[in-house]
Structures are given as C-alpha cells and as structure tokens.
C-alpha cells in the first residue's frame, strides 16, 4: 500500500503566555490517505483550527509554536522542519486551505480571477493567458456558471455560496492533493451547505483529493466523511472509521456529541447539550480533560491522563472507562 498522503504524528502546539506555556494542541496523530475525507470534530476551542494551522506552518502569532511531533507529506518530507521557502511551495501547491468565512478570506479589492491566476503564476511559471485559461477551467470545475464571464468579478459581486465556491477555486488553483477545509459550511444556509458538501465529494471523486474537513456538526460528518477524529481540549480522544464512530463510539465525549444531534430521534424538537463548559485555555483539568463533564468519571480519570490506544488498527481511543464492548483483537 502506498504511504498516506499526510501523516501527522504526536503534533503539539504551545502558546507562550504570561502564565507560562500552555498546550493548545496535544500529541495529535492521524493519517490521511489519498482520496479520503477525514472529519475533525469537536466543540469550539478544542484546537481543530490550530492543528491545521500547524500542519501548513501558519500559526496565528509568534507566541504560538510547534513544540513537537511531525507532519509527513507523502511519506517523505517532514513539514515541521522545512525551510520557509520550501514550505511556501507546499502551501497552495500540495495543501490548499479554505475557511469558514469566504467574504473575509478573499481579498475584496482583487478580482476572483486575479486571486486565482496570482497563485498559479507564482507556483507554476506560466504566462498570463495560460494562467487565465486555467483559472476559467477551475471556476468551471467548482460549479461557477459562465466562468469566462465571472472571472473578472470581485468577491462582493458573488453570492454567499458562490463565494465559497470561489474560495475553493482559489485554494485548488495549483492542484494541491490535500484540501484543509476549516468549517467551510458553518456560515451557509442548509441548502447551500448541502451543495458545497456535494462539491467537495465531487472534487474528491474527480481529483482524488484528500480532505481534512473541520466541523462541529456531526450531521456533516455523517454525510461526507470516511474517517472521523474527535478532539477535546487539544487532544484527539477517539478516532476511527465513520461507521464505527457514529454507530459504535466508545468515548463518553463522542457518544455525548452523538446524543446531542438534533436528528437523534428520541429527543425530537429538543436539542440536548453536554452539560458543562469545554475547558478554556489555562484551565485545563488534570487527568482526562473531559472528566469534569463526564458521567463515567472516576478518581482515576481526575488523576491520570488516559493513554491514546489503537485498540484496532484504525480505531484509536483515549479513555479509562470506554462505553460498550471493546473488541481488542487488534490491540498493539
């Protein structure tokens, strides 16, 4: 089997603060295969965006840095040790990124076409006309009708859904193999959200694109993901194939999230939430970060952090008292 397109190993991110260093991302590991869609779920503040920013080496401030781990691209280079100039080739060239709010993440004073051709011309030395043709082609691929006409439009001339398509086009301009999508549908209404998700699946199909899809919506995960990693307090607490996560989750936080889905059946019309607040920066609980909110917590949970265990080759779990029957056949 060919190596995973992206392999993240024990990636940690710390922030220097006045109260000392604080861990924002804690030994996160996952693999992303060619054509796979990995869902990264968790409440706001759990470190999903920070993990992805660390992968592409664009942490939001100089006080935040990678403190350990590796990010291996195609089984070869470790992105955490790449020179900035090589890293720039990776950004856009190997890994594209799209964001929650296309209105603020597109340059309002440059045309859509300008933003696409700019990347193409920077990554591949091609002339203006060639870049423009490629830009029209990519706009067509993301479902913009009449792309030759719309290419010179500015972001504000596009509707919300079209703007998200345009941002995808900008991110895919240089044919990256990996797309990181940070809550790409959170700001959109339901019908447009479904269209964008369909587009992402379509792109995965046609280009064998591998996608890391950040979301806090398990409904989105159920629709499009192959694999799911659940994050809590900077750690991945459970990771596995979508079917197993949705139907047979073992981590109390994962099952809590699933129970909170509005379409959960028994709680019709009433959205349940997990009691308590997610941990905030600087007040990370000892032991298992989830223990203050966990119904299954014991003394052990408050004292020792549960180890992340691959109890099956592709199902990881970090919990002292997992829910349900665990088949430990594949335990390493």
């Amino acid at each position: 089997m060919s190596p995973p397109v992206l392999s993240v190993r024990d990636l940690s991110v710390i922030a220097k603060t006045d109260q000392g260093p604080q861990t924002l991302v804690d030994r996160v590991s996952f693999e992303l295969n060619r054509g796979e869609i990995l869902g990264l779920v968790g409440e706001s503040g759990s470190g999903k965006s920070m993990t992805c920013r660390a992968i592409i080496g664009l942490l939001p401030s100089s006080r935040i840095s990678i403190s350990g781990g590796s990010v291996i691209l195609r089984g070869k280079s470790d992105l955490t040790h790449l020179e900035e100039s090589d890293m720039r080739k990776v950004r856009g060239g190997d890994i594209g990124m799209i964001f929650q709010n296309p209105s603020s993440h597109l340059d309002p004073v440059m045309s859509i076409g300008g933003q696409i051709t700019e990347s193409i011309r920077y990554h591949h030395q091609v002339n203006r006309a060639e870049a423009r043709n490629r830009a029209i082609e990519i706009l067509h691929q993301v479902g913009i009708s009449d792309p030759a006409q719309r290419i010179d439009d500015y972001p504000h001339e596009f509707s919300g859904g079209m703007r998200q398509r345009a941002m995808i086009a900008v991110a895919l301009a240089c044919n990256p193999e990996i797309l990181i999508a940070d809550e790409p549908t959170t700001a959109l209404d339901v019908t447009v959200q479904a269209q964008i998700l369909r587009l992402l699946m379509d792109l995965r199909e046609k280009r064998e694109l591998s996608i890391i899809l950040i979301t806090h919506d398990l409904g989105v995960v159920a629709q499009v993901c192959d694999t799911v990693a659940v994050m809590y307090g900077g750690r991945i607490c459970e990771r596995g194939p979508k079917r197993e996560i949705i139907l047979d989750a073992h981590h109390p936080y994962t099952t809590g999230l699933i129970d909170c889905q509005p379409s959960g059946g028994s709680h019709r019309g009433l959205v349940k939430t997990i009691a308590g607040q997610p941990p905030s920066q600087g007040s990370m609980p000892t032991g298992c970060a989830f223990h203050p909110r966990c119904a299954h917590a014991t003394k052990e949970c408050a004292q020792t952090e549960p180890a992340a265990v691959d109890y099956q080759p592709n199902h990881m779990l970090a919990c002292h008292h997992p829910i349900g029957e665990i088949n430990e056949g594949g335990r390493a």
Binding site: G92, G93, G96, V170
Partner: peptide, 8 residues
C-alpha cells in the same frame, strides 16, 4: 492569512 495559505 488566506493569501499566505496559498503559498504567496
């Protein structure tokens, strides 16, 4: 940020 994420 988005422009940097494109590798510019």
């Amino acid at each position: 940020t988005a422009a940097r994420a494109r590798g510019l």
